[in-house]
Each structure stands twice: as structure tokens, then as C-alpha cells.
Design a protein around this nucleic acid. Structure first.
Length: 425
RNA sequence: GGAGAGGUGGCCGAGUGGUUGAAGGCGCAGCACUGGAAAUGCUGUUUAGGGGUGACUUUAACGAGGGUUCGAAUCCCUCCCUCUCCGCCA
């Protein structure tokens, strides 16, 4: 959620920044805001008078004045009238408030001033590349879904039968490799200071609204029709919402969490894209990193988070690059975002394997996640950050291709070998 | 699914119609005492919003929403959630 006070006090600066993402009309919001505040002022004054009357009536009765006496009767009548007047205000006020709220929920986050300006992913900025020496030289590398099926560790066909397209079943060493990757990633992140959590995989609408998936992107998540519960599209949702509606102390920050969860996405509107393989599935595993930090530190915390995610790729010796998303490619809730892209030989290009975002106070404001700086009376919103560390299925895809050998076997990255008790698939 | 109990401030826990935003305790902060600390004492300690440059002032909130009343944490209705026991089940 954007900061209404900031918008009110400095609309021009606000609109300028937001215009880097697209065009948004802030005028309706400003108008509703003004109307609402006028109503609140008027209604509060009436309420105040009403409270005085009630108090006087109570005191008078206590002092022995009969409840039916004319002076008390007069006060009661006045209070009744005020009550009627207030009753007229309330529905209007509620309605305006609801409208305002709805509008505010659809405005995306302000991009950070340092986010490169651009209109599409073509204008994303490459930050660095790593691991050129690990890019395999061979020409005829099988795409991961082919080698996976040859090795008998991936099965797509039967998954269609039991679910539908865009699902996979892992068998034997495939299942073991997936599990090993999860374990390996978590081990590293725990070592780096993240506290592991295993949250619910179903969440309510409120949680999805706080992190920004609702109300605008409801068609992206699976909903359990009979309940107000959704399958999580990412661990970001349950883990961030662990702290929803809380006032933390400054000492509790920063909070670092890592979490393994499956993720469920409808992938609406991506028909025909990445229809084969592990790249775009309705269900995939992911290890997620989530941070809640004080605002002054969020920039450096963001950099550190990117390094934690990149550390996994480096440990696995998978070639990757980091790109900074431009304003046009930025996610709804993000102020700044780096994508980690792994080299995928079959595609001959880098593919996203992690997305590391700084949301500033956007999610915290929606989820009411605050903290009290030591010595201060006022609460402040925390900054939230998260990033994949990493998408597990895509990591497996990268291994199956980058580690493929001419004899159609796949070597395992050294760091994984102890987890699987073998060196080759 | 059946039966019961309960939801009050950071926490515990009083409170059944009238200056109760809420006793008491714990915790926390400040001060005093001390060589320093403990113990003790005193003081302070919710959040969100409106108005005001400011001192300040005002409104709301006792699970949520509605109702009764001049006045509701307290009474009535609806809903949600939690806990215990039984049944079923991973």
C-alpha cells in the first residue's frame, strides 16, 4: 500500500515516481481522501457533544435528580437528535472509506529512485555475470526434460493423467535430487543466519492482500472454493504474514527466515510458453528467503540477500547473471528487484531462477507490520524483502543440462554428492 | 461430525449498564537508594485517526458485525476463531 499521507503532502513528487511504471490517476484518491476527512471531523464533533451529554445525564442521576425530570429529558432528546445525525453520516463515510481503500489497494509500489527507468524487460540492466568457465562447450546437449525422461527420473505424461498439464512426477534419483537440493539450500541459508520456518501451504485472502497478490492478481492463484483459503503461490505469503498486525521491538529486527514450500500458480495467460519441462509448472518447490528489517538498512540487506541466493548457484557451479529489473518490469509490490538468471544450454540463454525484491514498507503497510524504534514513541513500518534461494525445479533443470555428459549421464555438483551418496545420475 | 468452555492492553488477569482506555500483577523505561548491583520505592508505559505551526484537543477500539439505550467490555442477535473431551482419520 502506498503512503496516503505522502501522497497528500507531496502529490507531484509521488506521481512523477509512479509514472515511471505506467500512468495512474491519483485525483480520485485525493478527492475521496479530502471528503473522508471532512466527514470524520464533523462526525467526531457530534460524537463529542453526545459523549458530554451522556456523562452529564449519568452524573445527574447519580446526584439524585429524577430520570424523568425536564432537564434530563431535554438532554436525552438532544442526544437522540445527534444520534440521528450521526447515523446519516456513517453509511456515507463507510462507503467513501471502502472506495478509497479499494483504489489504494490497486496502486503499485513506488519504484525506488535508484531503479532503472524502462518500459519492458528489454531495458533491464545486467549487473554482472559469473561462471562463464562452467558454461558447457558441447553442441548437442539434450533439454532437461529429454535427458530427465531418458534417465527415468522425470515423468510428465503420467502427471497429466493424475492432474493436468504443467505438472511433473519425480522418480527415484529425481525425487532424491529434488530433496537433496532443498536440504542443501536450507543448510546453507541456516548457516548464513536464516531461521527456518515451515508454514501453512494454504493462506487466507487477508494474507494474500498484505503481500500484494490480491486484489489485482486473483487469477494467478488457486483458490479452495469452499473456504477462504488459497494455495500459496510462494512462501513469501505465509512467512511475511507471520508478523501481520504486529508491533515488533527494534531489538527483534532484523528477522531472517528461510522456508521450503511447494508453490502453486495458475500461470494464466502463459499458454504456449515453456510448455515443456520444469520451467513453468503449476506446482513447484522453492526455498525462499524473507527478511524484515529497519528501513535504514534495507538497501544493504537487499544486497546481502542477493548474495545469499547467488551463493547457492556458485556452490553448485552453475553459470548465472544478475539483472536489475527496470521500472516497467518491476512486480506490483516491489520497489527494487534483482533477478538471478541461470544459464540454460538447451535454450541458449539465461533463465530466471530467483527474484530478489525489496518492498520497502509497501507490504508492511498492508499487513500492518510495524516496529517501535528504541526510545521513540511512534511506531514505524518495517521494510520487507524476499528472494528465491532458489527455485528448486529450475535448479534441477539447470543441473540436468549444464552437468550433462556426452554419454548421456549427468554428473552431480560436488556439494550435492554427499547428500545423494553418488557422483553421477 | 457430537458435547462443552472461552475470546479484555506486550503478557497474565479483574471487571455484568454510567467520568473504565479499562483495577491488580508481570514485563519494560526513567528516577531515587547503592562503591556497583540485587532487593525496595516513586513515576511512566496501547494503537489508529481527525483538528491545530505548537502546547494541546478530539474520536474510535475489550474477537468481528449488527441491535437495545442519553450511555455498552458489560444486555440481545448473527458470524468468526481458539481450547478441552468423544468419534473418525494422516
Amino acid at each position: 500500500m502506498i503512503d496516503l499521507e505522502q501522497l497528500r503532502n507531496n502529490p507531484q513528487q509521488f506521481v512523477d515516481l509512479l509514472s515511471r511504471r505506467g500512468s495512474f490517476d491519483m485525483q480520485p484518491i485525493l478527492t475521496l481522501d479530502r471528503q473522508l476527512r471532512e466527514m470524520i471531523t464533523q462526525r467526531s464533533q457530534l460524537q463529542s457533544r453526545s459523549n458530554v451529554i451522556s456523562k452529564t445525564v449519568g452524573e445527574s442521576i447519580k446526584a439524585g435528580i429524577p430520570p424523568q425530570s425536564p432537564e434530563i429529558k431535554a438532554l436525552r432528546d438532544e442526544a437522540s437528535q445527534i444520534k440521528t445525525a450521526i447515523a446519516e453520516f456513517e453509511p456515507q463515510e463507510k462507503q467513501i472509506n471502502a472506495e478509497l481503500e479499494q483504489l489504494l489497494l490497486t496502486i503499485p509500489n513506488l519504484p525506488s529512485p535508484s531503479t532503472p527507468v524502462g518500459t519492458s524487460e528489454d531495458e533491464n540492466v545486467e549487473v554482472r555475470r559469473w561462471g562463464d568457465q562452467y558454461i558447457p562447450a558441447g553442441e548437442n546437449i539434450l533439454p532437461h526434460w529429454e535427458i530427465g525422461e531418458q534417465l527415468g527420473i522425470l515423468n510428465f505424461e503420467r502427471s497429466v493423467k493424475i492432474a493436468q498439464s504443467r505438472f511433473v512426477t519425480l522418480l527415484g534419483a529425481g525425487a532424491a535430487l529434488e530433496r537433496a537440493l532443498i536440504q542443501f539450500m536450507l543448510d546453507r541459508h541456516i548457516q548464513a543466519g536464516y531461521l527456518e520456518v515451515m508454514p501453512p501451504f494454504l493462506v487466507n485472502s487477508e494474507s494474500l492482500t498484505a503481500t500484494g497478490q490480491l486484489p489485482k492478481f486473483s487469477e494467478e492463484s488457486f483458490k479452495c472454493g469452499a473456504d477462504d483459503l488459497w494455495l500459496i503461490p510462494t512462501a513469501e505469503v505465509p512467512v511475511t504474514n507471520l508478523y501481520q498486525d504486529q508491533v515488533l521491538t527494534a531489538e527483534e529486527l532484523p528477522i531472517y527466515h528461510c522456508a521450503y514450500t511447494p508453490c502453486f500458480r495458475r500461470e494464466a495467460g502463459s499458454y504456449g510458453r515453456d510448455t515443456r519441462g520444469l520451467i513453468r509448472l503449476h506446482q513447484f518447490n522453492k526455498v525462499e528467503l524473507v527478511k524484515l528489517v529497519q528501513p535504514e538498512t534495507s538497501e544493504q540487506e537487499h544486497q546481502a540477500l542477493v548474495e545469499n541466493a547467488a551463493g547457492i548457484l556458485e556452490a553448485l557451479k552453475l553459470p548465472y547473471r544478475i539483472v536489475e529489473l527496470c521500472t516497467g518490469d518491476l512486480g506490483f509490490a516491489a520497489a527494487k528487484c534483482y533477478d538471478l538468471e541461470v544459464w540454460l544450454p538447451s535454450a541458449g540463454k539465461y533463465r530466471e531462477i530467483s527474484s530478489c525484491s525489496n518492498f520497502h514498507d509497501f507490504q508492511a503497510r498492508r499487513g500492518k507490520i510495524r516496529f517501535k524504534p528504541s526510545g521513540q514513541k511512534q511506531t514505524q513500518f518495517v521494510h520487507t524483502l524476499n528472494g528465491s534461494g532458489l527455485a528448486v525445479g529450475r535448479t534441477m533443470a539447470a543441473i540436468l543440462e549444464n552437468y550433462q555428459q556426452p554419454d548421456r549421464t549427468v554428473r552431480l555438483p560436488e556439494v550435492l554428492q554427499p547428500y545423494l551418496n553418488r557422483a553421477v545420475l
